[in-house]
Design a protein around this nucleic acid. Sequence first.
DNA 1: GTAATCTATGGCAGTCCATGACAGATGACA
DNA 2: TGTCATCTGTCATGGACTGCCATAGATTAC
Lengths: 203, 203
Amino acid sequence: MGLRERKKEKTRLAILDAALDLFLEQGYDSTTVDQIAGSVEISPRTFFRYFTSKDDLVLWFHDHGEEIMQETLRTRPADEPPFTSMIHAVRAVAHDMEDSTPEDTARFLKLRRLMDENPRLVGLSVARGAATEQRLAVEIAARSGVDVTTDQRTHLIVAFAMSTLRVGFDCPQPDVPDMRIIVDRMEKTLELAQNAFRPGWDV
Amino acid sequence: MGLRERKKEKTRLAILDAALDLFLEQGYDSTTVDQIAGSVEISPRTFFRYFTSKDDLVLWFHDHGEEIMQETLRTRPADEPPFTSMIHAVRAVAHDMEDSTPEDTARFLKLRRLMDENPRLVGLSVARGAATEQRLAVEIAARSGVDVTTDQRTHLIVAFAMSTLRVGFDCPQPDVPDMRIIVDRMEKTLELAQNAFRPGWDV
DNA sequence: GTAATCTATGGCAGTCCATGACAGATGACA
DNA sequence: TGTCATCTGTCATGGACTGCCATAGATTAC
């Protein structure tokens, strides 16, 4: 990894951290891109070369999450019931977070606080989740050998799994969160979800 | 209903219709608020007094849908299993659409075409759905007498139901849609969903 | 019917987000 | 070191949205 790459990654994180702190300090809407750029000493124009939009700052972890889910799906046996595979994918995301660096953990917790205060941002996150859902549905449909554009069952399966992910993570949590607590909660949610369905409903 | 009110409703619809047509003609992003305002002969400033944002144009039917769901929930017996009540609420939305005026039907079908071409708008819709979900969860939690901030089961139940709604409506549909087809499809989706769960899972 | 009042509208100025074009700076590499 | 690709800053522009104030229109009271 060359100097260039490392430097880029560094500024990227610097922007992210500065933005999160500013958002929590003075609110999301009252923080301008100029301020964020100023506080990491780059031009506003450059900001948009690292993040396609101000909103995009808030979605940085989604890509990683989706990647993990896609990877997990690929390792699951093709004849496994699709919802089971999806549950494994969701669990993989949670456990990946457990192993994340202290910095990433801090970022995630800040982001959670931010979302608590700005419902609009939760909406953004959900919307992005829906896009992921589409792509996962394609994957699951391919495994089952059905046509993703017509098979509602596949979409339902993926949607239910993503709902579980969302409820586990995003659902209002009164207690001050720590990563351990969040993962535990996710485990509980997964268990609830698994017990909800009729055995063999998704085969 | 005074002249004032009627006139307002009329311009509101005029704006909406003009916007939808312009969007379909030249694309959502390439259509400016100034153009929309111009084509109904109001000032751009006035546009924002009817719709809080350009995006808001695309969400006009959500309020009505949520209202119907809330109403339906209120008429369902309090001791009915919550998911069953939610399914009734979803069905009520579909059947309300069946009875809508030809104008509203036309608007809805235009909107669907628009969303097919602009994934970002689907995202908006989903985001708005998430907000609705929160409010419905409050309602369901109140009925069950649980605390909405801690009870994940309630959130799962509502999320699953909303997923069903979304899959039924938003899911890619190859065939040129007519209201009848859409409602039929929703019925099928509802049936699939209902068969997925273990009997009594939500009591 | 007229006057007083309330509200919808228009115009204007200004903020912020976002993007294209170009030129200068900086790391990559032979 | 010199060439090349890429990153960055500057400038200009456009479009969404808001606050403010003046005016035209509708509503109500008399």
